[in-house]
Amino acid sequence: MIFYASKRILFTLPIMLGVTIVCFALVHLAPGDPLVSVLPPDASQVIKEQMMALYGFDRPYHEQFLRWLWRALQGDIGTSIRTGRPVSTEISKAVGNTLMLAALATAIGFLLGTLFGFVAGYFRDTWVDKAASALSVFGVSVPHYWLGMVLVIIFAATLGWLPPTGAGPGGSEDWKWNWVHVQYLILPAVTMSVIPMGIIARTVRALVAEILSQEFVVGLRAKGLSELGVFGHVVKNAAPTALAVMGIQLGYLLGGSILIETVFAWPGTGLLLNDAIFQRDLPLLQGTILVLAMFFVVLNLVVDVMQTILDPRIQRA
């Protein structure tokens, strides 16, 4: 097991290197001058060159890459052009917010998704199944920014139960675990949970139906297990796949929340990425993409290792 895990970790190293190269290249392949957004349009050529030298944009690409990589390894992924603060500081704050949102959304999605999935799988082809399936199809197909806006209109604008946007009263960004702050989390989390809910429900439904059609379920009944006992076996058979799907969904939510974070002005990585793009803040963009990509790689690793622990059939050698 330890051996397998270390082997998997070793395998991720080249992937990570590839990710850094792509991150670096993507930004430099983008057209336009990286400093265009900070310098006044009438800045002299001298000042321009001074700034280029200051940020290192005048060096050859491979040198820029190695310097960037070397610094990144030490935790320094540059300085935001816009705010002048270290990119790492900007990101860690945003990552915290996104993580909170994504984790809550995944948790809600996983709970409801497995519930619907199990019910639909157990009562296949009955109206219960059809209702649960319709709900999950809605979940994966509804545009989420639209759903977010609808929820805002209903629960914030009309009913006034919850705040529409932001992460704290008066645009404050100091998160605290109290109701005043937590109420800001609810609408975006619910909106976001609809994606994993739909996907997990569909996966679990198919899984449960498939497991229940297997001969070993008859075997379990034949040896005298109650329906509850059989259910326990179904859960354990479904768990590796369901958890893997959940992990991948969490990964998507960590990076793929730009639209929802923008709709709710939630100060997470999605909003940060959005700002970085529109303000042409290259170091910030690069750093954010890098961190998100790394997250994804690590998450895949964790899901993979977890799956081998849960499912004995996957080779551990």
Binding site: E215, G219, A222, K223, G224, S226
Partner: peptide
């Protein structure tokens, strides 16, 4: 519960394909 108690205790069954009839994720 009475049916579950009966199965495997009074009468038990051997299947054709043990690979399919045993739960793959339990020892």
């Amino acid at each position: 519960a009475a049916l579950a108690d009966f199965r495997g205790k009074t009468v038990s069954m051997i299947f054709q394909e043990p690979m399919l009839a045993l739960d793959p994720v339990y020892t």
